[in-house]
Design a protein around this nucleic acid. Sequence first.
RNA 1: GGAGAGUUGGCUGAGUGGUUAAAAGCAGCAGACUGUAAAUCUGCCGGGCAACGCCCUACGGAGGUUCGAACCCUCCACUCUCCA
Length: 390
Amino acid sequence: MLSAESRLKFELLHQDGAARLGRIETPHGVIDTPVFMPVGTRASVKSLTTDQLQRLGSNHSAPSTQHTALPRGPQIILNNTYHLMLRPGVDLVEKLGGVHKFMGWDRAVLTDSGGFQLFSLASIRKIREEGVEFRSHIDGSPYFLTPELSVQIQTRMGVDIAMAFDECPAYGISHAEVEKSMLLTHRWAKRSLSARSTSALFGIVQGGVHLDLRKRSVEEIAGLDFDGIAIGGVSVGEPKEQMFEIVDHTAPLLPADKPRYLMGVGTPEDLVNGVAAGIDMFDCVMPTRNARNGSLFTSFGKIHIKNAKYAADERPLDPNCDCVTCTTVSRAYLRHLYANDEIAASVYNTIHNLSFYLDLMEAIRQAIASNSYHSFREGFLSRLSSEESI
RNA sequence: GGAGAGUUGGCUGAGUGGUUAAAAGCAGCAGACUGUAAAUCUGCCGGGCAACGCCCUACGGAGGUUCGAACCCUCCACUCUCCA
């Protein structure tokens, strides 16, 4: 176990082009990178029990550096400060021994600072220099969140990695407005850092779609003593090409000796491209939310399980996947569960989508390790565009 | 046997002279979802076509009144309730 003193240790093991193979050590275990972190906003990865979460994935998704009794499942998940602050509240989580104990999860946890909620809950918050006043989306009661408070809350909940409190600007606002927002994020970054104690803390680069601002933001954030650097403010509505442009431009500017985290991204394709740009960490609600909405990722593209054509389809969802879902039930059964609003539909679908993501990340790691990432990526992207319907 | 109520698109169910191919919900079909206010949201949903418009068919059946009827009248069929 890592001492509280060092908080987090990152090792860059290998590089294939810009793609990086790495290893992060946290007080709750090792994380092999590139990594995808399932989102568990309210200390719950929606529709899964913690036990189911730990058993996710296929046999071949076992992280290469981990050969213990628990070969499956993610090595880290993400929780959210804002949501846990409202319910059940920091005091309670702390009193009950922290988020890990609270949810029965002994691997790493990263929390978002609540910064994203400045964007997603824009209508019920007011931003000031000092911090942000939220109206709870649950009961309308007021809450005030500052950079210091956010980091303190994350620390008190006992997370392995806390995020700096930032402002995630909406897509479509002016260069001047993005710059103003970015400068606020920079000032908040320093204040967040001043509140760091036992949890590792990542800084967040902003700057919207403006490459000059992105560069300035990297210079500022990378100049501070963060334990890792994130690219934020992406996938907020901008065209996909623009997102790749930002990532391709920004990632190489980041320090090589710290983990690089692309926040909120993305589709399987986005992950593959992000890794090629040198990203080490990702998180996204996509696999879990899409699962609940019947949209499933497979090795040959996306499947809408509610489609009539699967009504009598006896095949496994993805014959190339050996997750619990794909090895035990048919597409016809999955469609039936979904069509009838059975809770098991969400469970099976989430198990598969997350397993697919974990498998993909393991395949990515292996490709980097064997110096074949370029061809791996080419093959992956061409398979997606092959329009092979099944 | 008597009295009353009713019959609307796959289902439930609005509508009682024109703006009605007919509200709404459900079902059905398809799509979206990127640091989760999401088990959510959106579109289509009688048929046909040289289809941003036109033509057929349609509100139990058949007639009728009217410029015009799902809506008014007559008869018929069926369903339900109450009284014998």
